Simulated assay, not measured.
Amino acid sequence: MNSTDDRPSPILRNERTPSPKPRQPPRNNPYLPTPTEVFFLALYPLVLLFGTLYAVLSPTVRAAPYDHTTQSHIQDPSLAPSYFARKNNLFNVLFVKKGWGWITLSFIGFVLTHPSLKSPRARVKAGIRWGIVTACWVFVTQWFFGPGIIDRGFRISGGGCDAETELGMKGLVSAAACRAAGGRWKGGHDISGHVFLLVLGSGFLLQEVGWVVGRKRLLKEERTVVMIDGAVKGAELEKERRDREEINGDELGHGGKFAVFVVGLSVWMLLMTAIYFHTWFEKLTGLLVALAGLYVTYILPRFVPAIRDIVGLPGI
């Protein structure tokens, strides 16, 4: 009779069940803004919504005479509901009307003074990104193989210059030409140039300064990119280590502080625009066009490697 086999079961013989690997948090979608970017981008429609509701609910603003042709309140100081409702207020004349100059000046100051942007490569790529958003600004507000997109949209939607008929003049296809002829630009959909400029410019500075300054301390999340082989990786893998220095002390620096000031003033003037100028739909289209420009500049390169090789990513 065979004896019972007392040898331990193979399952018990010096074998350990491997401990499960900790689950990695899901990567951010490279086709969409990161959660932090969504938070800051959401501030723009919230500011516009608050300003629009304030204009509707405020007895002072609601009772003030409004000129629907110029999309602003009557400019007589005694009738305007606020100093900021007048187009000749100093903030509008000296800041918004020269807005892209202020955006560019603050950006140059940051690039030339921040230690992480000392390498020629980093500065060139930052300059390329500035060139892209500047081209967006030019195409929308100034020139797009003729009149800018805002003026083209106004004409396509049925608007025009009253001087064309009243003065017998033809070919006044831009708001600037119409005003120069003593006419008024009316009748069509007027994409808010102020909203477009203020959102595009401040969003540009937030991307350029935020990812450089906040990458180590504030922005713990990662941007993801699509590699040439289609794999989704963290953007830090593409970080060039040459010509980089550790950032110590005052990370913003004077250039960064000036850029933050320009962003803050832009948001304030965006609120004033939301309260005193344009219809809600004109403000909405100005916002959407600006967000499209930011998406092309900062999100598109994350999933198109060929573009990313040219324009780079801020802080990488």
Score class of each variant (00 low, 15 high):
Gly109Gln: 03
Leu90Tyr: 06
Leu105Tyr: 00
Asn88Ile: 05
Ile108Arg: 03
Asp76Leu: 12
His68Pro: 13
Ala80Leu: 06
Ile103Ser: 01
Asn92Leu: 04
Pro115Lys: 10
Ser116Arg: 15
Asp67Ala: 13
Pro77Ile: 08
Ile108Phe: 05
Ala63Cys: 09
Gln71Ser: 13
Trp102Pro: 05
Lys118Trp: 09
Leu79Val: 08
Lys97Arg: 11
Thr113Leu: 06
Lys118Gly: 07
Asp76Met: 10
Phe110Met: 01
Ser116Gln: 15
Gly109Trp: 00
Tyr66Ile: 03
Gly109Ala: 11
Lys87His: 13
Val96Ile: 09
Leu105Met: 09
His68Val: 13
Trp102Asp: 04
Thr104Met: 02
Lys118Gln: 15
Ser119His: 08
Phe95Val: 11
Phe110Gly: 00
Leu112Tyr: 02
Arg86Ile: 05
Val111Met: 10
Ile74Lys: 12
Tyr66Phe: 12
Phe110Arg: 00
Lys87Asn: 14
Val96Glu: 03
Ala63Asn: 13
Lys98Phe: 05
Lys98Glu: 04
Trp100Leu: 08
Gly99Asp: 02
Lys87Leu: 13
Val111Asp: 07
Trp102Gly: 06
Gly101Tyr: 01
Asn92Arg: 08
Gly109His: 01
Gly109Lys: 01
Leu79Thr: 08
Ala80Phe: 03
Val93His: 03
Leu105Phe: 04
Ser82Val: 07
Leu117His: 04
Val93Cys: 05
Ser78Ile: 05
Leu94Gln: 07
Asn92Ser: 09
His73Asp: 13
Lys118Ile: 09
Phe84Leu: 15
Ile108Cys: 07
Asn89Gln: 10
Trp100Pro: 06
Pro115Tyr: 08
Asp67Gly: 11
Pro77Lys: 09
Ile103Asp: 01
Leu94Thr: 04
Leu94Pro: 04
Ser72Thr: 11
Asn88Leu: 09
Ala80Tyr: 05
Leu112Asn: 01
Gly109Ser: 06
Tyr66Asp: 08
Ala85Ile: 04
Tyr83Trp: 15
Ser78Thr: 13
Ser72Cys: 11
Ile103Val: 14
Pro65Ser: 13
Asn92Ile: 04
Thr113Gln: 07
Thr104Trp: 00
Phe84Pro: 08
Phe107Asn: 00
Leu117Arg: 08
Ile108Asn: 03
Arg86Val: 05
Leu112Asp: 01
His68Phe: 11
His73Arg: 12
Leu79Ser: 14
Phe107Gln: 00
Asn92Glu: 09
Lys97Ser: 10
Lys97Phe: 03
Gly109Pro: 01
Ala63Asp: 12
Phe91Tyr: 12
Leu112Val: 03
Phe95Met: 09
Leu112Lys: 02
Phe110Val: 00
Ala63Phe: 02
Ile108Pro: 01
Asp76Ile: 06
Ser78Asp: 15
Phe95Asn: 07
Asn89His: 13
Phe91Ile: 15
Lys97Val: 02
Leu105Asp: 00
Asn88Met: 09
Phe95Pro: 06
Ala64Pro: 07
Pro81Lys: 07
Asn89Asp: 11
Gly101Trp: 00
Thr70Phe: 14
Lys98Leu: 08
Ser82Gln: 12
Ser82Lys: 10
Leu94Tyr: 07
Gln75His: 07
His114Thr: 03
Ile74Gln: 14
Trp102His: 12
Val111Trp: 02
Pro65Cys: 12
